[in-house]
Write a protein that binds this DNA or RNA. Structure first.
Length: 890
RNA sequence: GCCGGAGUGGCGGAAUGGUAGACGCCAAGGACUUAAAAUCCUUUAUCCGUAUGGGUGUGCGGGUUCGAUUCCCGCCUCCGGCACCA
């Protein structure tokens, strides 16, 4: 184990602590082994209070109907982790600490609080670890979960562990299968031959959302296109609702915007083009129907079914070669923007519906089969891509919207607000000349409708969700393929379909998914109607389990239904959902889709699952790298004349702030921090670092700062020489003239409002101000300390429970009532008024808080300094801001 | 390229139209100590000045206002997302 150089040796844990294999909550400390003193010792009090909370079941969520009715509810949820082998990093507890503070405060404020934790335990990494270690994925996950749970429990979070869920347990995934049956019943799940993202390295297909730049986003493995028969979910049917309902959510604007972009709604028109000399026609989608007079050619995607039919004999060879070339290209090549446009003429001509003009039909891979109709009308004058293509192949460019800054041959004019239509009338009766673009769009759509040549069309970028994977470690589908060729859902009574034991987790030699290895005992099924068939061998993607876990927490042990109606009615929606921004699109879009389906089934009563969403920012760390790019562990580096050098060899190293990673040697392990400073310091620092939502670097020195603060809090209550209560503590009631009492009430006010809005860094700063004040106060009324401990309790629960019990005796602080502030005590009697001349601060005066405006004005003009700066001039205007300042304008 | 977000001391950050730099870190000085750690106290944006004091200062340039870190316009830089989506 290595230590950050800033951790003093005296704070590093003893060997016995480190070697103890049990989680901290189970560790037994022998007091006589430890130095006899009365200082704050987190290693003793933290396990002690964790044990007390567990013994008393302090954070059990009420489920008795009577108890539920008696109080309002608050559901605060963390994005549950994927329990990886690497264990917790300091980024996890950041969000967990914030939600725990909220949960503890709400509980003390008299809410019934649901604050659960669980595990997103299906998925690829577990399966790969299983292959690597020759163990069952369930065994790997159990081990990882135990590790995660132990680490999380050391931080003293107030989760109700009786409600823990695990997506890979049969009790859980039987209901994931059950929800799939609902999707199937509603005709939202279907099998289709689709061009899918096949990842050869992983041996599975991936959803569109999991692929970026032709690579799997998680591993960077290259993905290729393949036609395969796969399960799809009709998320596109919900596109508009997924878009509309974003408006009412209290979510970060950036996340809403990312979802809107992903759904990608465009309004435009479908326009039908006849093909010269053919019976058939084709439809294009365009957002700019106003530019129809500028269409000088059309383009079909290479995969478009019409290509083979319309290609002329002269062009056939060239077209076939081009298609073969395009098909072989990876998505990475096809979407590479740097490459020049390619394409080939099909030999056929389309007829422009607005003027009957013959325009050539080209085949080019810059048109994608997967968007719109796979065919476009090309308007090189007003679309950059068409412009580039027209220039490359010498096709005509016509200006139909005037207003561009350069000649149309040089640059496409794409602005669609101020341009005015020109060259846009034809013998078919449409005349757009003189109209602005938006008017022209509407006029064209209306005209196309009249002539039955087209209509308004809303197009979404969102595509149906590819929902099957060729993996072992996922939910089996409750589906049978009968021998007579039908796809049949199994009845509810057949659930759960448990994963069979198999000997290897690879696909079979002939390329079928791993479940095909299960053997006929599992694979072959006789249906109630007597027909026989084979089970579906694909499994569901990892996203499935996380699409409804927040509902299972409501009623986690229900064996008859996924959740009860009463529980759903009481607890939903989730009041606060906290997690990383990396889930802004995938997880959050999928969950919202499932929730809406469940809503349509009458199984949930809210349109949206998560009323308020908060993304915590990533925690970064300093890393040290020499000229040659070699990284050094912070332990090996020391400061030198403002720079950093290696401790041993004195090589200068550059300091940078980066994402934590093993290869950069800058990972901070939460266990090390807890061992050195305790869980309360860890919790407090995670929140004190800065605003919760921003990226910020971990600085071990900052932990020392909050650690010092906690020691000061301890000494307010405990005399560290005797172990008795601080002799300054009195039983006198809090006096309204006591300045400390005023600071307390200001602190209560600020802690409440800042905690509600998750501005916990400033809440902690205010509590530090209180402690600074209390440290120098002559007397410490018990009543004031008691209120302060309740404020700090949600942030540093172990320390505060200990001090609470010493100060007040019986009863848990976690169950104490929340203090309220007296507004009158938050206002100072004497306030400072700043005096300005022409907006510059020149003097200040102390006045009673309710001094009248006129008096303030008079006092200002009487001030020597102010008179000096007025230079004998008459005041032109005097602005008085009550309680703040007076500004004299001369 | 498009869409979001951000730019404040040596560092993390505070202030959302009204005293810029709360709180913490670092640093310096002092008290306590045989000594060190811990603790406590003081100083700590910057420039001129011994000082009273004064000037400058929230990425850059402009604007609105009695008053702008905060609002508006233009630019620069960084971070995140999307990207041949017709």
């Amino acid at each position: 184990m290595s230590w950050h150089p800033s951790i003093p040796a005296s704070w590093r844990p003893s060997l016995t602590e480190l070697e103890c294999p049990l989680p901290a909550s189970r560790q037994v400390f022998k007091c006589e082994d430890l130095m006899e003193d009365f200082n704050y010792t987190p290693s003793i009090i933290e396990p002690k209070w964790q044990q007390r909370w567990a013994d008393e079941n302090a954070f059990r969520t009420p489920s008795d109907p009577e108890e539920l009715r008696s109080k309002p509810k608050y559901y605060v949820l963390d994005m549950f982790p994927y329990p990886s082998g690497a264990g917790l990093h300091v980024g996890h507890p950041e969000g967990y600490t914030a939600t725990d503070v909220i949960a503890r405060m709400k509980r003390m404020q008299g809410f019934n609080v649901l604050h659960p934790m669980g595990w997103d335990a299906f998925g690829l990494p577990g399966e790969r670890a299983a292959v690597r270690e020759g163990k069952h994925p369930a065994e790997i996950m159990t081990r990882n979960i135990d590790n995660f749970r132990g680490q999380i429990q050391r931080l003293g979070f107030s989760y109700d562990w009786e409600r823990e869920v695990n997506t890979s347990s049969v009790d859980y995934y039987r209901w994931t299968q059950w929800i799939f049956l609902k999707l199937y019943e509603k005709d939202l799940a279907y099998m289709a031959d689709e061009p899918v993202n096949w990842c050869p390295a992983l041996g599975t297909v991936l959803a569109n959302e999991e692929v970026k730049d032709g690579k799997y986003v998680e591993t960077g493995d290259v993905v290729e296109r393949r036609m395969m028969r796969q399960w799809m979910l009709k998320i596109t049917l919900y596109a508009q609702r997924l878009l509309d309902d974003l408006d009412d959510l209290d979510w970060p604007e950036s996340v809403k915007e990312m979802q809107r972009n992903w759904i990608g709604r465009s309004r435009g028109a479908g326009v039908t083009f006849a093909i010269d000399g053919h019976e058939q026609d084709f439809t294009v989608f365009t957002t700019r129907p106003d530019t129809l007079f500028g269409a000088t050619y059309c383009v079909l995607a290479p995969e478009h079914p019409l290509v083979a039919k319309i290609t002329t004999d002269e062009q056939r060879e060239a077209v076939e070669n081009y298609i073969a070339e395009a098909t072989n290209k990876s998505d990475l090549d096809r979407t590479d923007l740097a490459k020049t446009k390619s394409g080939v003429f099909s030999g056929a001509f389309a007829l422009n519906p607005v003027n009957g003009q013959r325009i050539p039909i080209w085949v080019a891979d810059y048109v994608l089969m997967s968007y719109g109709t796979g065919a476009i009308m090309a308007v090189p004058g007003h679309d950059e891509r068409d412009h580039e293509f027209a220039r490359a192949f010498d096709l005509p460019i016509i200006e139909v919207v005037s207003g561009g800054s350069k000649p149309i041959e040089e640059e496409a004019f794409t602005d669609c607000n101020d341009g005015v239509l020109v060259n846009s009338s034809g013998d078919q009766g449409l005349d757009l000349n003189g109209l602005k673009v938006p008017e022209a769009v509407n006029a064209t759509i209306a005209w196309l409708g009249d002539k039955e040549l087209g209509e308004e069309k809303i197009q979404y970028r969102l595509r149906d969700w590819l929902f099957s994977r060729q993996r072992y470690w996922g939910e089996p589908f409750p589906i049978v393929h009968t021998d007579d060729g039908e796809v049949v859902p199994l009845p509810e009574e057949a659930l759960p379909i448990a994963l069979p034991a198999i000997d290897q987790y690879r696909p079979t030699e002939d390329g079928r998914p791993p479940l095909a290895r299960a053997g006929d005992d599992w694979l072959r099924v006789t249906l109630p109607d007597g027909r026989t068939g084979t089970r579906e061998t694909n499994t569901m993607p990892q996203w499935a389990g996380s699409c409804w876990y927040y509902l299972r927490y409501l009623d986690p042990t229900n064996e008859l239904e996924p959740w009860s109606e009463e529980a759903e009615n009481y607890w939903m929606p989730v009041d606060l959902y906290v997690g990383g921004v990396e889930h802004a699109v995938l997880h959050l879009l999928y969950v919202r889709f499932w929730h809406k389906v469940l809503f349509d089934c009458g199984l949930v009563h809210t349109k949206e699952p998560f009323q308020k969403l908060f993304n915590q920012g990533m925690i970064l760390a300093y890393s040290y790298r020499d000229e040659g790019g070699k990284y050094y562990h912070p332990d090996e580096v020391e400061e030198n004349d403002g720079g950093h050098v290696t401790r041993q060899t004195g090589i200068p190293v550059n300091t940078q702030i980066e994402k934590m990673s093993k290869s950069k040697l800058n990972v901070v392990n939460p266990d090390d921090v807890i061992n050195a400073y305790g869980a309360d310091a860890m919790r407090l620092y995670e929140l004190f670092m800065g605003p919760l939502e921003v990226q910020k670097p971990w600085q071990m020195k900052g932990v020392e700062g909050v650690n010092r603060f906690l020691h000061r809090v301890w000494r307010l209550v405990v005399d560290s020489k005797t172990g008795e209560l601080n002799t300054r503590i009195t039983n006198d009631p809090a006096d309204s003239n006591d300045p400390l009492n005023r600071v307390l009430h200001k602190t209560i006010k600020k802690v409440v409002s800042d905690t509600e809005t998750l501005q916990m860094n400033t809440a902690i700063a205010q509590m530090m101000i209180f402690v600074n004040e209390a440290t120098t106060a002559e007397t410490l009324p018990r009543e004031i300390l008691s209120a302060f401990l309740r404020l700090l309790g949600p942030y540093a629960p172990h320390l505060c429970e200990e001090l609470w019990s010493r100060l007040n005796g019986e009863g848990l602080l976690a169950h104490a009532s929340w203090p309220t502030h007296d507004e009158a005590l938050c206002q100072d009697d004497l306030i400072t008024i700043v005096l300005q001349v022409n907006g510059k601060r020149r003097d200040e005066i102390q006045v009673p808080k309710d001094t009248a405006k006129e008096d303030l004005e008079r006092l200002t003009l009487d001030s020597d300094k102010i008179r000096k700066y007025m230079e004998g001039k008459e005041p032109r205007r005097v602005i008085v801001v009550p309680g703040r300042l007076v500004n004299v304008v001369v």
